[in-house]
Write a protein that binds this DNA or RNA. Structure first.
Lengths: 198, 198
DNA sequence: CACAATAGCTTTGTAACTTAGCTATATGGC
DNA sequence: GCCATATAGCTAAGTTACAAAGCTATTGTG
């Protein structure tokens, strides 16, 4: 009973007294504010957080079905994908997945050992390595497709055709924004202690 | 020169011979196919992969600015968020972030040690713990808000008002889809060796 | 009142990374 | 052509981010 008292006023402190400051916003673009507040945007961020965790869990499951770890599977399908538009090197994959080259080197090595990726020297730059997925890997992934299809249908059941179109349109900009934001973060980290305006 | 030969036909094997099988689809809902193919959907998946990696990197950067690890920061803001709609326990957070309770216990312990989270026994269920963020944490996050705002403006520069509305509408369904898909994966994993139709 | 289920904690282990340092090649100025 | 600088990839070493298993204390359930 009286669990109603658990109701939390999002503007009040622990004693219930409302602080004078008008809650600093976590985003400022007007398109992303609603009635001057960032509540909707925050909900968006937390929703994204919850969704991406489940997306990753699903990917890990698919990976496990073909005997790979999540990252291995991700790297494998990324090579297959990137291969469609040109030569793929370790650094290409690392940039695409936004992780260190060392990690890609390591995991690609394991994929090679499994016979799923082939590694030959690039013809144009002998420092580089040309990665491609083997026929064995294609068969493995083709075998996974039915399950993948069920998983994707379930995962994206609420998405309609227009949503997909719009997101496809949006993604390049969002990725660019991600690169810009991480660059910005690098700058903020480098200059952080300099200013101290409370 | 003659790098043009690197052009990869996405339907051909290494020798250039086209396999007879018509590329198994990774999704089957008609809304998500284009001209009967899953190419657009695949592009969507890979774009999402690239974007979420950058999103996480940005979050890690924000976390670092306040002396937290990425997961610590994520857990902290999740508690703050979940607190707005009711009591928050370890398992609430674990379910929201789709990770193990053990991990939440561990990280929350560190946040408590830093004075950012308070932990008291739930009044209604003495097995449970009631988590809440401290005033110190609120100040810390408020101090981060300006940077966060710059980062979010950059990250989501390409998103317009209608996009945000639509995604907000979509997210609950997507999260539910994620839960359903991971459940499905559990089933697939449990029954995988049973059938073997090559 | 037993019994099963649930919440959380601790321990223990593993997988997922990164940083630093190295070598080989490439590239741009002089 | 040659030197300085940058880039590609590899390796080794270390750290962090997790999860599985097992325990205790509680709570619901027949």
């Amino acid at each position: 009973m009286q669990e109603g008292s658990a109701l939390t006023d999002r503007r009040s402190g622990p004693g219930g007294q409302v602080q004078g400051e008008p809650r600093r916003l976590t985003v400022s673009r007007k398109d992303l504010l609603r009635e001057g507040g960032d509540g909707a945007f925050r909900a968006f961020v937390h929703g994204l957080l919850a969704f991406t965790a489940r997306l990753e869990a699903t990917r890990n499951g698919l990976a496990g079905l073909v005997g790979l770890s999540g990252p291995q599977y991700t790297i494998l399908i990324s090579i297959a994908h990137l291969e469609e538009e040109g030569d793929v090197s370790v650094s290409t994959v690392a940039a695409h997945l936004h992780c260190s080259g060392a990690f890609v080197t390591l995991e690609v090595g394991r994929l090679v050992k499994k016979g799923l990726v082939s590694k030959r020297p690039s013809t144009t730059d002998r420092r580089r390595v040309r990665l491609s997925v083997t026929e064995k890997a294609r068969r493995l992934l083709a075998g996974l497709a039915p399950t993948q299809s069920r998983a994707n249908d379930t995962l994206f059941a609420s998405l309609d055709a227009r949503d997909l179109d719009r997101i496809l349109e949006l993604l390049p900009g969002l990725i660019a924004g991600g690169d810009a934001a991480t660059a910005l973060m690098g700058y903020e980290i480098a200059t952080r202690d300099r200013k101290e305006d409370a």
